[in-house]
Structures are given as C-alpha cells and as structure tokens.
C-alpha cells in the first residue's frame, strides 16, 4: 500500500471515471453561472454541454479560487489517516489558488510534523495537468516514493506542452487571463488565434491563423516541432475541448496518422467548468510531452 496520495483539483479536465480509475484525489473549484454558485465537480452537477450552451446564449460566468480553509478541510482527513500528500495545482499564472494551497500546507505541516505535504505549481492547466497526473500515477504504481515523484514533477512540468486555439477569443478577453488581446479577435475574418502556455504558466496568443482548418493543421505542425522525438513521439497525447468535439476528433485523427509511435490513442476530454468559464465554447487544446517551455 502506498503511504501517500496523489491529489489534483477539478481543473485537471479528466472524466470522473478516469480520475477514480487512476486513484487520484481532487479538490473542487466553485463557479458562478448567472450569479448562482455551483461546485466544479467534473461535470456532475452541471454537465459541460449545458454550461457552454448557456455561455453561447450570453450567460455570465465567474470562477472562485480555492481558499485556504477549503484546502485545510480537504487535506486534513488524508493526514489524519497517516497519508502524505502530493498535490498538483492549476498554474499560478492563472489563479491564486496555488498560493493558498501552499499556505494551507505550511499550517498543516506544523500540526502534522511527521507528514509530508508537497504542493506543486503545475504552471499548466486542464488536461495537461491531467496528463501530468496520469504519468505520476504510472510512477506511483511502479512503486516510486513520494519524494521521487515530487522531484520528477518539479523537474519535468515545463516539458508539458500546451498548444491550443479558440474560434472566439472574446470569452478569454472578458476573463482577463491572456497576455494580450489587441488585434487578436478578428472574428470578421474567421481568425482562430493559436495560443500556448509559457514558462510562467500564462496563456500567450502566438499567431493569428485564418480559418479553423488551417489552425488545426498548424497545431499538429507545432506538435511535430515541439514533441519529444518530433514525429517519433512515443508518449501520450491528450486533447481538451469546449463544445467542439468534431474538431477535437479531426485533430486526434491527424495526430494519430502523423505520430505512429504514439502511446495509445489520443484521449479526448471536455474542458470543465472552471477553465471553461474563461475559454467559453470553441477551444481545443493539445497537450503532450516535449521541449521545455523557455519563454
């Protein structure tokens, strides 16, 4: 039996079944839909499709970070049971939750001096964290210790690459979580901006690409450029999307054709409520292991 738990939060954007199967624990964010607060519990309370439909119709969304109290309440039972904790949080470049997690962990270490509590800033988001958690779960199952996992994830988290596009950047602009917005909208011309996550874990618009068809090709080209081993990439690839399943399928098919050594099929997930409140419908993100993010 492991003497530690692997923990993440509801921005991991994996299905509940997946999270359970990999024996991952998670803490929930909360979000507001037209002023009413809901738990982001991987789509159990409010199905993702319903959220995106509401957003398309102009619903107002807001997200709420996880505060120190919530972390204390969530971490404590594991510690009580004598388990150590490795918790991976949403990027500090997007949310203050990470800091609250660190503060909670510090308080708890005083109360439980024999326990180890590691809180990791993923500098990433969504199914990318999902892919990190999946890899950590593999290592745990292979019998590695919590310290080995902690140093590995700190060493490797910037090797997780995120490339994504949006057919409508206006939700991102409203949410205020992108580094620049001017001139990136281009809705009249059908521009789908190509973005990635930088080394500070922030969302950076990289290029304005005309039409969805082209941005899909471009995203696969970026994967060829940045994936470990290029076209010989043999790791896993996760896609997260918000209400554009068909496009996600198309990207997955292209990737499966272009990367013959891929480990398994591309896994397609739906972007959950917390991330989705800021992306709105129309985003697809490709996550894979590759070159370390440097800028």
């Amino acid at each position: 039996m492991n003497d530690y738990i692997l923990s993440c939060d509801s921005t991991v954007d994996l299905t509940l079944e997946h999270v359970r199967a990999r024996k991952l624990e998670f803490i929930c964010y909360h979000f507001f839909l037209d002023g009413v607060m809901y738990k982001d519990d991987l789509g159990q309370t409010i199905p993702h499709e319903k959220l995106y439909e509401a957003m398309k119709n102009g619903a107002d969304t807001k997200t709420s970070q996880i505060n120190i109290d919530e972390y204390l309440e969530y971490f404590t039972p594991f510690l009580e049971r004598g388990k150590d904790i490795l918790h991976v949080s949403l990027s500090s470049g997007l949310s203050g939750s990470y800091n609250h997690g660190v503060t909670a962990a510090r308080e708890l270490s005083e109360k439980y001096p024999d326990r180890k509590i590691y809180v990791v800033d993923s500098l990433g988001a969504s199914s990318g964290i999902g892919l990190i958690m999946d890899t950590l779960a593999d290592m745990r199952d292979a019998g590695k210790s919590i310290d080995e996992l902690y140093s590995w994830v700190e060493e490797n988290k910037l090797r997780l690459n995120y490339w994504f596009f949006s057919t409508d950047l206006s939700f991102y602009v409203k949410g205020g979580r992108i580094t620049k917005a001017e001139g990136m909208l281009g809705g009249l011309l059908g521009i789908c901006p190509l973005l990635n996550v930088n080394s500070q874990g922030k969302l950076v618009p990289r290029e304005k690409v005309r039409t969805k068809k082209r941005v899909i090709r471009e995203i696969v080209a970026r994967m060829e450029e940045y994936a470990e081993g290029g076209p010989n990439y043999s790791g896993k690839c996760y896609i997260a999307h918000s209400a554009i399943y068909e496009d996600a399928r198309e990207i997955a098919a292209l990737i499966e054709a272009r990367f013959p050594n891929l480990s398994g099929k591309v896994l397609i997930n739906s972007i959950g409520a917390t991330i989705g409140s800021h992306t709105g419908p129309g985003t697809a993100a490709v996550c894979f292991w590759g070159k370390k993010r440097e800028d």
Partner: peptide
C-alpha cells in the same frame, strides 16, 4: 474599416 480596426 471595421476589418482593419478589429485586426488592431
């Protein structure tokens, strides 16, 4: 004009 404005 709108197109140019929207593009920044």
């Amino acid at each position: 004009t709108d197109v140019f404005r929207e593009l920044g």
